[in-house]
Design a protein around this nucleic acid. Structure first.
Lengths: 336, 336
DNA sequence: CTGTTAGCGCCTTCAT
DNA sequence: ATGAAGGCGCTAACAG
């Protein structure tokens, strides 16, 4: 079962140079006479030599690999981020070890990634549990959070201003005449870890001199369409006449349920979603949505990480970046 | 910037044993006296020692890492497969290096994964270009194809019987009275690499004594919703009164375009999609679809790979497995 | 510009 | 049941 056979040593021998020289040409070190460089290149070609990244990683203490933790790869929100991450990683010649970390599995995912001696980590999640925060710090490698805030500001992160975005759409819903705007999110967004969205919602309610109705704040344990469709009955039976929803699949599920039950959207009920994934265009009426630049968030996160991995001092690096967002008004709202 | 500090050597010294012994307990080797095992464990705990997977990989020639090539991580079809792969990989303690390989980037993706000395590869794609096939063989490591056929049967693969599935839905469409069933797929499925779906379509047409109309076979260069929505005008202007579509997002785009243009589905036009992702339930009318067990395909693929990586002889291993599929009749077809 | 020499952290015979 | 010793393939000073 021997796989890789030709090593740097074989190339050296065949080319009549030392392995150091081969190493130099492979790594693009300039201190090599053009003629010998060429000679070595030829041998590399002939032998079809491919450097062993594992050995290289051990010797150099750099694996040019970054770990990416993703809560759900089948969620368009996260996979869009991942695509941005991946593209930039490629651009800078980093490989990605991507692990799907389901709820509660984050720590395992993280430590197995850390064991692989990754040079940095991009962490995505609904929240940042204390144990993860600790592991992340302990690792002493660069970390950037994508599409999540770090309330303690210990880590770099890239986001849109979720609080303001939610504030804004909630406000607009109220101004359009809605009296009972509900807030629907996965449970994680209701806790202390990622308070920004909920805060934005509450602030908008308060500023309009409306009461924050706690029974109009709903937490789902999953972000899946069917789950949301089943949940929607509760929303229908509540006083709500509008909802701000944190996840497109949930929004789609709610929208379809309401309509299947004879509720007119947007006449009787307004819906605003948050991610502007393809889903918002697929349903009818199309969903009004906040539009975070998902791909860019991932891309910028990775870009920052590359900077951190290159330099030793993180000082001149933007630690916390906030990207602009838009709001697309579509047919699930009226006059907002 | 030193990160990992405590090595197996530190543990050995601290525990008063040799590093060989520490290695044994870390690797679960049975030949260790329980008392010393415990002593070592304690030190490991105390020092918070974590084995360096890179060093381990170099020394043992096994990285317990598998490379996964995915054409588009934001495509629900592939990300569902990936989830199955990832779950099983975790179960068998393998890590995954996942690389998004856009059209034409497959070879780079593959070779960077290979350089990482992965123990095996799961390859997903729309097709299997010759250069990739060559690279894959050259690597001499276990490979399994997920959700794609290998016409030359050189590699293991797990699939449903796409040809029969497409044959069946096409047949049913015809029996329901449709005279001009179109076939819509990404271009890759129109070539020689993955002929099964198109073959199933053509066979069904022929067996019904209908002519295969080449201008009713459409190839898109992308599988995205908007792309499909824009394309759909062509379909509408053709003779087609039904379509078998290879990708749910494309199907959704076509469905919405047709309806936005006043075509009644399913009265005037029938649509069948192929992947049964969440999308088919989100649109109205819901899409009739072939239901391949995507998660399972990924899971089985990974399971086979683990077997291949464990044994040296692949002989007793199922090389080509075909999983059963279903067909869900929903509202985009009538009486099929 | 090029070669020599140490390791990187761990696994793995081979002895004991 | 345990220890000693030799690499795995490559990088990184350090000489020259």
């Amino acid at each position: 079962m021997e796989k890789q056979t030709v090593t740097i040593y074989d190339v050296a021998r065949e080319a009549g140079v030392s392995m150091a020289t081969v190493s130099r040409v492979v790594n693009g070190n300039t201190n090599v006479k053009p003629s010998t460089r060429e000679k070595v290149m030829k041998v590399i070609e002939a032998l079809d030599y491919r450097p062993n990244a594992v050995a290289r990683g051990l010797a150099s203490k750099r694996t040019t690999t970054v770990g990416v933790i993703i809560p759900d790869i089948t969620n368009l929100f996260f996979s869009s981020l991942a695509q941005g991450i991946d593209d930039i990683a490629k651009m800078y010649k980093y490989n990605i070890i991507l692990t799907n970390a389901e709820e509660g599995q984050e720590e395992n995912a993280l430590s197995s990634v850390l064991a692989r001696q990754v040079d940095g980590i991009v962490y995505m999640g609904h929240s940042l549990p204390e144990n993860i925060r600790k592991e992340l710090k302990r690792s002493r490698i660069p970390v950037v959070l994508a599409a999540m805030n770090d309330s303690k500001e210990e880590f770099s992160s890239v986001n849109i201003d979720y609080e303001t975005a939610i504030y804004e759409v909630t406000q607009r819903l109220i101004k359009s005449g809605r009296q009972h705007v509900a807030f629907v999110a996965q449970e994680d967004y209701l806790g202390d870890n990622q308070p920004s969205r909920l805060n934005g919602y509450k602030r908008a309610i308060k500023v309009s001199d409306l009461p924050v109705e706690e029974d109009l704040i709903f937490g789902l344990n999953q972000g899946k369409y069917k789950n949301a469709y089943d949940f929607a009955e509760k929303l229908k039976n509540s006083r709500a006449d509008a909802a701000v929803i944190i996840n497109d699949e949930i929004a789609a599920g709610i929208l379809n349920y309401l309509q299947d039950e004879g509720v007119n959207v947007p006449e009787d009920f307004s819906l605003v979603s948050s991610n502007d994934s393809a889903v918002v265009e697929m349903v009818r009426p199309r969903l009004t949505s906040i539009c975070p630049p998902l791909y860019d968030i991932g891309a910028v996160a990775m870009r920052i990480l590359t900077k951190m991995m290159d330099k030793d001092d993180d000082d001149e690096i933007d630690k916390v970046v906030t990207l602009p967002y838009k709001i697309s008004e579509r047919q699930s709202t009226r006059d907002i």
